[in-house]
Every structure is written in C-alpha cells, then in structure tokens.
Nucleic acid binder design. Sequence first.
DNA 1: TCTAGGATTGAGACCGGACTCACATCGATT
DNA 2: AATCGATGTGAGTCCGGTCTCAATCCTAGA
Lengths: 353, 353
Amino acid sequence: MSTEGSRRRDVTVADVAKAAQVSKAQAARALGNYGAVSDDVRERVLAAAEELEYRPNELARSMNTGKSNTIGVVVGDIENPHFGLAMRGITDTAKKSGYHVILINTDEERAAEVDAVRVLLDKRVDGLIVAPASSVHTAHLQQLRESGRPLVLLDRAAEGLDAEAFAVDMTGISYESTKHLLAAGHRRIAFVSTLTSDKPYQEGMALESSQIADRLDGIRRAFEEEGLTRPADLVRLNAGDAESVKKITLELLDGPNAATAIIASDGLIALGVVEAIQESGRSIPDDVSFLMYDDFAWTRLTTPPLTVIAQPVYEMGQAAASALIRQIEGRRTSAPSPELAARLIVRGSIGAA
Amino acid sequence: MSTEGSRRRDVTVADVAKAAQVSKAQAARALGNYGAVSDDVRERVLAAAEELEYRPNELARSMNTGKSNTIGVVVGDIENPHFGLAMRGITDTAKKSGYHVILINTDEERAAEVDAVRVLLDKRVDGLIVAPASSVHTAHLQQLRESGRPLVLLDRAAEGLDAEAFAVDMTGISYESTKHLLAAGHRRIAFVSTLTSDKPYQEGMALESSQIADRLDGIRRAFEEEGLTRPADLVRLNAGDAESVKKITLELLDGPNAATAIIASDGLIALGVVEAIQESGRSIPDDVSFLMYDDFAWTRLTTPPLTVIAQPVYEMGQAAASALIRQIEGRRTSAPSPELAARLIVRGSIGAA
DNA sequence: TCTAGGATTGAGACCGGACTCACATCGATT
DNA sequence: AATCGATGTGAGTCCGGTCTCAATCCTAGA
C-alpha cells in the first residue's frame, strides 16, 4: 500500500564493484581499507560507494571475522535506577571502544537468565556482562566460562566461578554502617531485602545472593564485636513488590519487640519502607531510624534527608565494560581495577534509639 | 595461560550431519524443522546435535533470512528513570514476540543519534524505536523511513515524518495543569527544561522538541483563555546539569517579579529545583508552588508530597514495541493503540499564590 | 505387476563480506 | 637487457546457515 516499490535490496560490494568497473576483491579492499589498492581504483570505488549509498552489512562482516563488536548485558531489572546507571557506565565505555550493547532483562529469574545467556551466545556476542540472579546456581555461567567466551560479573559474585566480578566490598561497608547504628544505641536493627527464599531467614542459612549474604555478614560481625547478637528475626526476605514491603515494614514496627532501625537493601525497597513509615504516622528518625543502599538524588529531598550507603554504580559499569573489552581483545590487565569502594553518607535519618 | 586448549571452533550443521551420517541439507532440515525429514533421520540428527551441543549461529541464520529478530532502541539517556521504565516496557514486549533489543544512548546529541541509526541499520536490525533528540532535524529518520525499515517514535513526534509516534497529548495535559495553577491564583508560572537552545526563550520561538513546544502551547492556551498573557520570561531552557538547574531556580525565585510556581519538565530537573528551593530556605508550597512531569515513587515521600503529571511510560514502551513488531511482521493494525493519556495527580505541592 | 505421485535425500547455489593465491605490472638494480 | 621485489588485480574460497532442484525411494491404485 505505502511500501514504496518493494523494499529494495541492499547495495553490496558487488554492486559497487560493478559500478566502479573493478573486481569485487578490489572493491572490498578499497572499502575495507586493507591490502593494496591503486589510487585510481580507490577513488572510483569510493565514489561509486558514495553514489550508491553503500553500507557494509555488519552481519556478513561479523560472520567471517568472528567478531560482532557487540557485548551482551544481562541484568535483573533495567527499570531499577541502580541498573540504569550501571548500564550507562557500560554503554558509555563500550561506545568508546566501538562496541555495542544488547540488553536482556531477567526479572531476577534464573530460568530467564539461563535463556538470556544462551541467546546472546547464539548471537555471537564477543563477551557478556552478567549480574547473576543467583550466586549459587551458576552452572550456566560456568559452562559459558568453559566455552571460552569472555565474561565478567556485575554487582554480585558467583561462587567458585573464575570470573572477574565488579562490586563493592559489601561486608566492609555493611559492618561499618552497622557500627554507626550500634553507636547510636540501636540494637533492634532490621534488614529488608527482595531476595526470594522458600523459608524465612534464620541464622546461618545459605543465601542465593552473595551480596545479601555479605551484608548480613557485616551486620553480624559488627554485633559480635560489641559482644551482642544480631537479631535474626529482623532479617526479612521476599520483599518483592511495594505491597509486601509495606506489610513487612508494619510488622517490623509493631509489638513490644519492634525494630528501632531499618536497613533497606535497595532503592525500590527504600521507597516502600519510607512510605509505610510515613503512612503509619511514624516519623524518621524519632520513631524509627532508617538506612538504605544507593545514593539516589531523591534521598536528599525527603524530610529528613536519608542516610545512605553510596555505591559507585556508574564506575562499576565502566569498570566491568573495560575489563570485558580488555579480555575480548586479549590484552592483559593494564591498570588494576579502580577502587569501587562504597561509603556511608550520614544525613538525617538515623537518630538515637 | 588459562585458555583451555585454544577456543574450540563452534559446532556447525556440517559437524552434526557428519556425526549423524546424513547430508548437510538433511541435518539442516531436521534442526530447522522444515522440509521433509524421515523420523529415522530426524532422531539421529537431533541426537547428534545434543551430543555435540550444537547451537545454531544466529548471525549466519540472519544473513540469509534477512531477519535478525532484533530491534534497535535509540534514547537520549537510559540513566533517566523515564527511559528506564520505557525500556522495560519495550524489552518485555519484545521478548514476548521473540525479539531482542540493542540499546544506544545518544546523550540527546543529534550527531550521536544520526550515528546510532546508521550503526543499527548496518547491524540489520529489523526495526527501530527512536526517541528523537530533535523534532525538527529529522533528515536521518526521513531517510531511514524511505529505506523501508520499520520505525516508530517514542516520547516525541517528528515534524513531517510519516511514522507512528507514541507519546501522550502534551498540549492537553499541559493546558489542564496550567488551569489548575491559574485557579490557585498563580500568574507568575515558570517552566524549566533541559532543552538546549542558543538563545533564551522568547515568544513564538521555534523549538527543537515537539514535546516542549506542545507543553508551552498548552500553558499559553490556558493563559489566553483567561484573558491573560503567559510570562515568557519565566520559560527557561538549557537546564542541562544539576548546577544550572539550581542556578536557574534561584534566579526565578529572586527579585520583585519572582515566579510563584515552577513547572519542572522532567524528573532530573525536578530534583534540582526542589533541592535548590529547600537549600535556599524556602518551602513548598508556602513560598513557591511546584509541579513536575513524571510520577516517580519518590515524589510521594517529600514533604509535602509533590503534585505531578503522570505519564504511562511503561505502556508507551509497550505500545511502541508492539506497533513496531506489527510493522516488521507486515501485519495491519489490529487493535487501535491504547489511550496513553497523561493525568494530573494532585498532591501537596501547589498552594495559593 | 506396473506406475503415478508424494515423501526423502543429497549436491550445490546463495547471503555479503574477508581473505588467499596465482598472475600480472613496473620501476629499479646490475 | 635480464632480474627482482614491490605493488596491483581478479578469480575463487570460506564463514554457517537456508533453500532450490533434480534424483531416488516408496506405496497405493490400476
């Protein structure tokens, strides 16, 4: 109907060659800028290419160079600003080196992740950046590793997997910030995470996420160092959607053994927790203290502004991308990976217990 | 050093064929599930494929089917949650139809956008979703359109470009919310946008962005309907980074002709404006009223919660993706595009002038 | 028993580039 | 004038699939 005379076939080197009256091989050389080509031929070919609006088919090129100049990124949820920012770091870095990025979202589901990795491999990406949904079930990544394709991990480590991981030292920062809470007199410190789990949390339980495990570890160590025991009943998992976050928050604040401080494991949870606190008529930090991971700009705008754990997310993305590209191009580590340290930014959401 | 015996060549149909003792053609048929294949052969081939862990090379497949099952997405800034959410809508929808997504960031620079489009075309994506940096300079999109490749626009329209655009009716919602402000007694209403421009805004000036133009149009209409004139001096462009946003905000609030209400054109600007207002010791809505575009969760957490214009961003992404896929697959419009209406959510940031 | 017509099958072309190899061409060397 | 190495050049292969085409195999109907 509106298709202007059937989508015309793409212009190929052969077409250019014919127009320039040279062999396909010569045209390819002139276009690809390799081999020996006389000035005369080069000019004619380039002119013809211009004239015909020739554009190389990257697919064909990839096929026999074996390089697609594309890296695959697998994350749990691009809607989460944490990943949005990391993604920005990745794409910026990739672009600088001439790589492009294919993004796949997994909704933090392992099956989707397995599938994503396979799909990207089938598309022959040059390497992958994965934020693994699980730090334990990593068979698919292990396999990927063995196939020889470059892989780096983002945000989380994976057990027994020989791959560079770009994440901050969670145990350390968690320890440090728990100390901060303890110093303010808090003992009933709650931790709320999206991490899914069949059973409620209990001491010593194995966790799917290294990140969460490390954070809990940091908390425990801080408590122990003071000769105290971390209240395991205040560790809450499965805070999937806003509804469950709110429900959990209210539970934590209820009863004689209520929490006096809550740590939100990420920005999405933080929103739910703070909203639930406000809706229940309580105030931060008078009724309950609050600490969250990730320093989003909006955390400065609430009353009071929120005390947060800032992670260099953009830099993590950058670092992951450059490390991956380095691997792809077979270069040995040039510069040691940058620091990637998290830090506690004290604002107004933590008060005395 | 650790490369386990040189990255082994990929397994191809030819390998599978040999293992199954059939011709390459038969193996391909069994694997690709087309043509006629006897049960016996099919079984042997499938078994051999399994055994050898055969995985088809999508690049090769794409090359002679002419389909890459990939769509390209070009946005200004994936770090902006607005696009993060839209992206989520796009990837979710794409996945359902078996498409994958290549993302390119342009930093809202036209040159980068032109380049992005070309690159995606070279990669032979099946179609593109573009959030055009400019609604005026659209030669590259025009060209794309003429090449016959499916294209849909996201978030913004482009002048004289025959392509479906998925965006809300900006003029309408802008008109409506300005009425709301006027009803509260505001006359000095400011509008702050990132849109870059050589000259400061002045009445009747042509703008690069249809989106902003429409919003200003809505504001103007609302004023005119009341027999008033929209104060053009309060329209501020070039609010690029947080610094300039703050500077502009302070300017707007200063002097005898200060603004009594500020409209922030997007979430990033909103953060800067609100922060500047707070830092200058003023309060919302007592000293100045505030309205912003996009209903992010954090807008409910500030004191007071912010009055916003909610856009169905996720749905816009979904709609854009399904429309594009429909085009790619040559189907005629089945369902009419969903509504995509923005709405004013009144919370506490608008008071009497 | 013979045969038409569908089911199977293998050889090979093809997609669009990159690249190998053998064969000129040509000015410089001796 | 014969020789040599450095270009130039075109024919043709290859990458890993899809797909056409002609040949072969079967089986039911006559």
